[in-house]
């Protein structure tokens, strides 16, 4: 089914960087292949120039998950099965492990990587909203330089990031949160098993004495790329948690989304629903913090 394509299997990350320097533009990195392989089959234009696939799944250095100096590091090739099962992530970044567990099927999660999900940058990429609310920083390497960049700056438009063809995403760094945060990853699909998000939301809320200290929310599948909704976040801070505020926030969410997307075919359904479910999530988080 798949056109003539060459494979390159680097022995190390360094080797890969050199290879990308020399052959950059016609090379595509392949990790789990769960986006690339169906994409090639369906003749997706974003893969039409690909002559060589550079396989990185076997590079163990890209698979580690660990916490050190207050940050969680996740290697780019960590699969969603690994992420879902990882105890550190469950404890400190539950929204991410929840999202990981809701991606595709077991077969997909066993292959699909977090970097592949981010670099593919589909509007419905489920790991992105949690990564955004956790202020994820992306680690990038090329033969030219190593640098880090906040995730929100990396995401350009649907199915596109700012990564250059000779750059490799090596991992993510997530600062461990202070105490007192509660949060939820919400995903709405058309069916219960193996479903692409119609709407997703990641919400983090830190409450103290009934008022909101910190508030973070990121959208998925309802905006062209996932974004943090900073207007709402700022408005919420230092206000008293409760249904009145939550209704306001939900309405603001509706207004912000419509500003970003305009009227689309799906808006009459999605816009009211995302407001309603955002409100429901906030009420639930608030109730949980009251009942402890």
């Amino acid at each position: 089914m798949i056109q003539d394509i060459d494979f390159y299997r680097p022995g190390s990350l360094e080797e890969l960087l050199t290879f990308l320097k020399d052959h950059g533009s016609n090379v595509k990195i392949i990790a789990g292949g769960t986006d690339i392989v169906p994409g090639l089959r369906q003749k997706a234009s974003r893969f039409s120039h690909v002559k060589t696939l550079a396989d990185i799944q076997h590079l163990h250095e890209l698979k580690t998950i660990e916490i050190s100096d207050g940050h969680l590091s996740i290697g780019s090739c960590a699969t969603f099965s690994q992420i879902e099962a990882n105890a550190l992530i469950r404890k400190h970044f539950p929204l991410l492990s929840c999202a990981a567990g809701l991606i595709g099927s077991t077969q997909i999660r066993n292959r699909a990587t977090i970097a592949g999900n981010v670099v593919n940058n589909a509007p419905c990429a489920d790991s992105v909203p949690p990564l955004l609310v956790y202020d994820a920083i992306v680690c990038v390497r090329s033969h030219r330089e190593d640098y880090t960049v906040p995730l929100n700056e990396l995401l350009l438009k649907p199915y596109q990031t700012r990564l250059n063809a000779d750059e490799v995403l090596t991992g993510f760094r997530l600062p461990v949160l202070a105490d007192g945060y509660r949060g939820e990853f919400y995903k709405l699909g058309r069916r219960r098993g193996v479903s692409i998000s119609r709407i997703s939301l990641a919400v983090l809320m830190q409450l103290q004495g009934g008022s909101i200290q910190d508030f973070r929310v990121a959208s998925g599948a309802i905006t062209p790329v996932s974004v943090r909704l900073s207007g709402i976040e700022e408005y919420a801070r230092d206000r008293k948690a409760g249904s009145e505020l939550f209704a306001q926030l939900a309405q603001q969410l509706g207004n912000e989304i419509i500003k970003i997307t305009g009227m689309r075919w799906s808006t009459p359904y999605k816009l009211p629903v995302v407001q309603q479910m955002f409100y429901q999530i906030l009420m639930k988080l608030n109730d949980e913090s009251v009942t402890g």
């Binding site: 299997r9 292949g33 392989v37 169906p38 099965s81 997909i108 292959r111």
Partner: peptide, 19 residues
């Protein structure tokens, strides 16, 4: 099964099988 884990063989390419 790939190393004991369930995977979709329609999404795996020969080049990824080494070892």
């Amino acid at each position: 099964l790939l190393n004991g884990q369930a995977v979709a063989s329609c999404l795996l390419l020969a080049g990824q099988l080494e070892g």
